[in-house]
Design a protein around this nucleic acid. Structure first.
Lengths: 153, 153
DNA sequence: ATTACATAATTATTTTAACAAAAATTTAAT
DNA sequence: ATTAAATTTTTGTTAAAATAATTATGTAAT
């Protein structure tokens, strides 16, 4: 469905505005479907994101600032996010021995199991969304988005 | 910058996952820049969205449910959003004479002025973001996003 | 050694979002 | 006419986001 029909605009839009709206709206559709999956596991997208970052570290504990840096959407409060994960026993938190200002966060076995359980659903979500596009089109879409983000000046 | 470098993943990602992340991340960059513009005018993106919808109605008052329907991100509480705009005198709210359950929201002169003031900044934002892509690439990006959203099943 | 500055994380406060429940009105059915 | 169901909006409650301020530790300069 064309973005014009979705927001039901009367006047024709400049291509730039259309593109921006299209990206915004597409992300929205994406997030809604994804949240649907996570809701059954009582995880917020941000919590999931943190778990995935921790898993990506292959067991190596990770500081709060590294987590914050790697999140897709920069959250303003990683502490409370990790608090929630701690309550669910999905992560551990310890003071870094080298630098007592820092914290070392690590994913637990339970956290890894949750990710493993979620993984097929997430993959399914991703493939349902991408099945309409050929591999070439997907490459092109990624290329265009990356080019779009490159802001000169 | 490639999405892999942004989220600093070690292992290669499937094209589907990469695409999903790329869309999410791009929207994020977009929103952050856009919010920066709005902040100076003490408007949230949702409030701006509502004003734009009302302007699109060319003075014709609009019901709450129509506003809700046309928003990019479906908000769960249009009432409170409109409350904020009312306080700033950017909109009016009246009971619909035909159907007393409904409300008629309209943008005020002050609201239109604010949009007019904001417009060049928003257009600039859009053109800075799209200047890297040729008109053909922009058309292609829109086409791919629309195709991506078409979920069969 | 003391001071100032920088960094890392937490806490506090105010706004906003999400969700469910309620209120008001209209429409439809008996 | 009464009751039930549907629609539209509002309100209440709880959770989460945004921002600023604070605490704690570390680093560098005098």
């Amino acid at each position: 469905m064309k973005i014009e029909d979705i927001i039901k605009t009367t006047s024709p839009m400049a291509i730039g505005k259309r593109t921006v709206l299209n990206i915004m709206y597409t992300q929205n559709v994406l997030s809604e479907r994804f949240n649907e999956i996570l809701k059954a596991y009582d995880l917020s997208p941000e919590q999931f994101n943190v778990l995935r970052i921790l898993k990506g570290q292959n067991g190596k504990p990770t500081n709060m600032c590294v987590i914050q840096e790697r999140m897709i959407a920069k959250t303003s409060n990683t502490t409370r996010l990790v608090d929630k994960l701690l309550l669910k026993e999905l992560v551990t938190r310890e003071i870094c021995p080298d630098n007592r200002r820092k914290m070392e966060i690590a994913i637990t076995e339970k956290g890894l199991e949750l990710l493993a359980e979620l993984n097929p659903k997430v993959e399914c979500h991703e493939s349902v969304l991408t099945q309409n596009l050929t591999p070439e089109e997907l490459e092109q879409l990624n290329y265009l988005l990356e080019k779009f983000r490159t802001i000169n000046q």
